[in-house]
Amino acid sequence: MTRRTDPVQEATDAEALMDAGLALMVENGGRRTRVADIVSAAGLSNDAFYRSFDSKEALVEAIVERGARTVVGYVRHRIAQLAGEGPEAQLRAGLAAVVRQASDDALARQTRIVLANATVPAPHSGHVSVALVDALAALFAQPAAELGAADPMRAARTTAAAVLASLQYWLFTQEVPSPAEVEHLVGFLLAGVRAPDSRRR
């Protein structure tokens, strides 16, 4: 007889496992974190782990996806905060919110450690990147339109992809972008949003 599973309990277990896994990865620094340690820290069983995740790599991928959702939520919050300040201020705030993941030492260290705990490239890592670009583009499209972009969604998607590429560069090189570097990036991307559409020439 197949035992029934409780979707709510499974979701709760998955969150607990991600919390425990993230905390242990940060605590262990560059050392690999074992599934057994994660299960013990979460106060759950191996069965509970494998009901939620196929492997530790799947857990790491889920942590990355959750982090991406957090970034999108923070960007949305910063853009909404500056709703009365005009589209340039909103887009500046949104871009700076993304770059914060590299300029904030604690956030950058946490992200590097999580990625270092993946023994192989996550099978859906490309999907996570595409989803993140699309989610950010959806937030950037309205300010881009108000700034005069000929194709707001195209400009927003290009801007989102470019700021994420810069973020990845700083994370992987372990460089902390200076305020001048962040300002250069933001100014460069704003100029790109305002650039004429070459297809109309």
Score class of each variant (00 low, 15 high):
6 D>G: 14
2 T>P: 10
200 R>T: 04
107 L>G: 06
34 R>E: 15
151 D>K: 14
44 L>P: 03
123 P>T: 08
29 G>M: 06
199 R>A: 14
20 A>T: 01
119 T>C: 09
37 D>S: 15
122 A>Y: 04
96 A>M: 08
59 L>N: 00
35 V>A: 04
66 R>D: 02
41 A>M: 10
124 H>P: 00
48 A>H: 10
108 A>M: 09
129 S>Q: 13
171 L>V: 11
107 L>W: 05
112 R>C: 08
19 D>N: 13
130 V>Y: 13
7 P>E: 01
179 P>F: 08
185 L>W: 01
22 L>Q: 08
38 I>G: 03
154 R>K: 11
176 V>N: 07
144 A>Q: 01
177 P>E: 05
67 G>E: 01
26 V>K: 13
69 R>E: 02
43 G>I: 03
106 A>Y: 07
157 R>F: 05
83 A>M: 10
164 L>C: 09
123 P>D: 05
79 I>A: 02
45 S>E: 05
15 E>A: 12
119 T>W: 12
131 A>Q: 09
117 N>V: 02
151 D>E: 14
169 Y>F: 15
34 R>H: 11
89 A>L: 08
141 A>N: 00
148 G>V: 14
81 Q>M: 11
112 R>N: 07
167 L>D: 01
180 A>M: 09
47 D>H: 05
31 R>L: 15
171 L>P: 02
93 A>Y: 04
198 S>Q: 13
149 A>T: 07
72 V>Q: 01
147 L>Q: 07
77 H>Q: 15
102 A>C: 07
